[in-house]
Amino acid sequence: MTGRIFYIARNTFREAVRDRVLYNLIAFALLMIGGAVLVGQVSIGIERLVVINLGLTAISLFGIVIAIFIGIGLVSKEIEKRTLYTILSRPVRRWEFIAGKFFGLTGTLVVNASLMGVGVFAALLYVSHHLQKSDGWVLVALYFIILQFIIVTALTLFFSSFSSPLLSAVFAFSLFVIGTFSEDLRGFAAVAHGATGWLATGASYLVPNIAALNVIGSVAHDQPVAGGLVLYNTGYALLYSAMAVCGAVLVFERRNLK
């Protein structure tokens, strides 16, 4: 069972690695990190701030784009091209296929983020000539970004299990954007009354809490991240993505292949 999920994940990773689009996106992100160094140099005194801000934002944005871009095709492309036929006629359960696809793409994103993270640290080293203790918080911020990727991948997989690739991309990206304002949504839900209040409360639970996963700003200002938040975010991201993936499995189990 776990063996098959691993093999499917590895093949998903292999597919991504052999796709040229991925390299273009990574090159672009690294270019942005390089650009951050240049910008940092003209603004003396805040080089670190600029490099961390721009670098991590670039990693996050490009990662989200890759997660959605590859995520929408993860299942639909296999149905469309009928490559699934020869997979599902083997001892592979449909849920194993979904799980394998999910882990394959998150694995790809973790490797990407790590590579780009090395880029950010190289840039940091370049502007401040040595690493300092507070650079550790950059790692935590990077970890949170990876948690965002996991959530967005799971959501994209969920949407693509029942809607077209384009709509899935729109849904997933919208939820991501709304999620970055989830704190405001919660605030609104707390003060709104009646039906609006109910709706806002419901939405604030459904929408992924991306805001809590974004600590780029405070880390750029050398502020530490509370240990409790690390724990909360880890639990939250895992639970949220597990639910989305389960939803995708439930839909996919019943689906007739073209």
Binding site: Y7, I8, N11, E15, D19, K81, T83, T86, R90, P91
Partner: peptide, 24 residues
């Protein structure tokens, strides 16, 4: 399958190896 189509980024050997893995 009818008019089969496979992962075109794999070689024939890689593909069969993958299927062999899935078949245990």
């Amino acid at each position: 399958p009818e008019q089969p189509y496979f992962y075109d980024y794999l070689t024939a050997r890689e593909l069969l190896d993958y299927y062999g893995q899935l078949s245990g």
